[in-house]
Design a protein around this nucleic acid. Structure first.
Lengths: 142, 142
DNA sequence: GTCGATGCAAAGGCTTTGCACAGCC
DNA sequence: GGCTGTGCAAAGCCTTTGCATCGAC
């Protein structure tokens, strides 16, 4: 289930740009969250040319393929992370002030959210919650 | 603790526009969530003139005063709701497909989130979580 | 009368899109 | 070689801002 075959199944092509994009996230590992602009810059830093428009297009493509996951935060724009193959459940503590994102696992949060969703007939997506908070640095800072 | 005195404490003035904005949300009650554009349109429907720029400025002002609360969702742009005086804790099930928002209360979710935040030194904000999900209608729909 | 608030229009981010060319299969 | 993908620049959305005027206090 390589990138090439995944693309092929959808009638789409493997291009250097797509490889570079996915490679970027894989190199960073699972705990990192990048905006389109940051991804573009990081590729550029490595001398890998991908236009910003293509970065946007590819982020969307890889997300729709389930290889990346989009964090739905209003603060600091959209961010993307590698969608771990093991589907390990994790949540995000998002500092609304500096944008720092810390991951945590908490079956209790998920269970509670799932129960609530079920009561209302909703179906939970992907089990990733974003919890708005202030990080230690921003808490102490005025 | 009227709007007038709250504003006065901050050295700011009570204007018809600000009264209209807060009045709009109070009339709708606590379970409603409006975008800037929607708020502008609803005022317009009542013949209450407030420019869109002022709608944006006032939404920000009332939020900073704690009278409104901003929902931090990426989908469908920013939305605002009345911040209940009783500070009753509630969370949102947000349908990522149609934008429908359902409220629910769940001390368990909050407790679990709070515990996780504490472990990481974060301070939870306002205790409102937004849970991304699919509503019943969008679940059954292809 | 003063100083903050409003309205308008212009400017600003971020993201998407149209089009011609490039390059994967 | 056909047809998808890319790059570029332009267009789009949503939101903020500069500036002259208005009006709350």
């Amino acid at each position: 289930m390589s990138l090439r075959s995944s693309l092929h199944d959808r009638g789409q092509r493997l291009t250097p740009q797509r490889e570079r994009m996915l490679g970027l996230f894989e190199r960073l590992g699972e705990g990192r969250h990048l905006s389109a602009e940051e991804a573009h810059q990081k590729l550029r830093d490595r001398g890998e040319q991908v236009s910003l428009a293509t970065v946007y297009r590819t982020l969307r493509l890889l997300s729709s393929m389930g290889l990346l996951r989009e964090l739905e935060l209003a603060e600091g724009g959209r961010r993307f992370e590698l969608a771990g193959h093991d589907q390990r459940l994790h949540h995000h503590l998002v500092c609304v002030r500096c944008g720092r994102i810390e991951e945590f696992e908490s079956p209790a949060v998920l269970d509670a959210a799932e129960a609530a969703a079920h009561r209302h007939g909703f179906r939970l997506l992907e089990g990733v919650l974003n919890v708005r908070a202030l990080c230690p640095a921003c808490t102490s800072d005025p």
